[in-house]
């Protein structure tokens, strides 16, 4: 039996914003980098995202946020990840993220931030880098 362990990533769209092109093309890029990607679909609550991450035992939760609400969303989700003891799960965030918020997110416990325009290579190596 093939027993290769793959990085499993949940690409999730939290909240009401429906711009999913970025999430979808990143999902395809991660697939082509050999990862197993679960896509949450739109309009997810943080509870739905957490429950999906647990059931699918993903290694990475990748949020795509275009509405500008990345700070409050990440603050809550990092707290939920801690509370549920998902110590091995890394949270990464992409979307419309102004420069000045990157450090704020990192301090919150977000493992990597990929603002719009980040290349697929950087995203892939950034995620691979979390496991080295």
């Amino acid at each position: 039996m093939e027993t290769v362990n793959k990085i499993r990533v949940l690409v999730a769209k939290p909240g009401l914003d429906g711009h999913d092109k970025g999430a979808k093309i990143v999902a395809l890029a991660l697939r082509d980098a050999g990862m197993e990607v679960i896509y949450s679909g739109l309009h997810q609550t943080l509870d739905q995202i957490m429950s999906t991450a647990v059931q699918e035992s993903v290694d990475v939760i990748g949020l795509s946020i275009m509405s500008g609400a990345h700070l409050p969303i990440c603050e809550k989700l990092t707290a939920m990840i801690k509370e549920q003891g998902l110590d091995n799960v890394h949270l990464v965030v992409g979307g419309v993220i102004p420069n000045q918020d990157v450090q704020v997110l990192r301090k919150m416990g977000v493992a990597a931030v990929f603002p719009g325009g980040t290349s697929f290579d950087t995203i892939v190596s950034g995620i691979n880098g979390l496991f080295q």
Partner: peptide, 15 residues
């Protein structure tokens, strides 16, 4: 959703 709905939090008037 109305502005006081839980899912509206952080999004009221934003876009």
């Amino acid at each position: 959703y109305d502005s006081d709905h839980p899912l509206a939090e952080g999004e009221v008037g934003r876009v």
